[in-house]
Design a protein around this nucleic acid. Sequence first.
DNA 1: CGGTTGTTTGAGGACGTTCAAGTACTGTGG
DNA 2: CCACAGTACTTGAACGTCCTCAAACAACCG
Lengths: 248, 248
Amino acid sequence: MNHADLMALAKIPLFADLPIAKLDELEEKSFVQQQPSEAVLFEQGDSARFLCVILSGRVALVGSSKAPAEDLQEEHTKDEAGCAGHDREAIIEIFGPNEVVTIAAIVLNLPYLMSARVLEAARIALIPADIIRDLLQDDASFARATTVMLAKHWRLLSRQLKDQKLRSGTQRLGTYLLTLTEGRMSGPADIALPLDRRTMASWLGMSVENLSRSLAQLKPIGVTANGRAAHINDIAQVRAFCLEDGLR
Amino acid sequence: MNHADLMALAKIPLFADLPIAKLDELEEKSFVQQQPSEAVLFEQGDSARFLCVILSGRVALVGSSKAPAEDLQEEHTKDEAGCAGHDREAIIEIFGPNEVVTIAAIVLNLPYLMSARVLEAARIALIPADIIRDLLQDDASFARATTVMLAKHWRLLSRQLKDQKLRSGTQRLGTYLLTLTEGRMSGPADIALPLDRRTMASWLGMSVENLSRSLAQLKPIGVTANGRAAHINDIAQVRAFCLEDGLR
DNA sequence: CGGTTGTTTGAGGACGTTCAAGTACTGTGG
DNA sequence: CCACAGTACTTGAACGTCCTCAAACAACCG
């Protein structure tokens, strides 16, 4: 890893308190990859060999599962060749610059539960898992910073699980749009959508078609979208529809 | 907190490495409550004042949200009085003996995202949040243990989120039953269901009625259930139906 | 221009929810 | 012991949501 990248790394809270010696070790033993969109950093089931730190770009954690195989009594006309039924996929979480992926798998030294795919061309720093585990063992402030990061990640997921179990797709979409307004509580907003429809749909747990329809459903409460540009007439109205619990 | 409870506490990995002095402080400043089923330990939105350690019994984290209010153009015959539409609830996670609830909220010093409700009469040790935060600051091995615990919790949630986004209710039910077979890969199993139908349904993210139907759907692949007793003829067959990814 | 990709729309179907009834298993008081 | 109520669970029917398949449309690029 070159020195400029190391400096970028050292600005991230997780590594901010490391002593020089440890930083030198990182510089020596880690490396940086430039990954294009759609690149796969690792696959679900791989053992966790590196900590991925996103220096720029965006990365999605993707869970996948075989398509329903119709095990029960139904008879289906099989596709021609031995096509085993393409996989279903769902984006579980999206991480951006200065965030860290796979920390849980490394802490526990267990295989990844999900795959990681690049959404926007990204620079990724790869730090060998051993080094991270040593740091956890030796450096109290690193362990503390890891705890804080994992706690944040836990809250992200539990929020999402609540959304998934309690809210409709349209409400999840509204909530997602609200997260892009940077926390204002009322008034109008212009939003630049950072994702294409396909990715947004997977992230929100719905089909692309349904995302389109959900957007249409939000029109009566003052939400319009064209390509990657969206506009909200009154944030308060959208908040009311989405049943915000104020715990964002 | 009395000494016997402290000894129980000290057996939990999170506290196992604490020096005597710290344990004494815990003994002095913490207390234990016996809570009956249905008791609420804290509500979503409360600030995190205590770490809850479950000494016995079971506790559910419950997310809640107002019932859909039909904000859009629909006209609905309002219920008679100003009935504001009872809340919807979903169980997000269930914790049992020797597990710890709310650790993320305490680390971050933020309000709870969810409420906690007792499922089975429980003994709960309540440790003031300040003490935990001090421990995190002063005691490296405690910080490490917290990291490990949070990492495990993170994996629990991401597994659940995958299930929720990729699998049908019936498959989630099958997967849940499999978790109660203690990891065997094939052969028959007798299962004692630890939850009633209502709780199971909420936990699996479906209605009680649908849970019943899902159980009926599993009958053709050799699953039967009567009250709290369930039986699987061949675990391998259920695993195939549930599309296990081997990453349990 | 045709081909490709991304988005929208419509029709039909699978899954899940709700409401409503029916069944089975409790415990209580006569 | 039985009638009774209360709870838990199951079943059926109507409805809504969301998905899939198919087609139409737009934008972009060779």
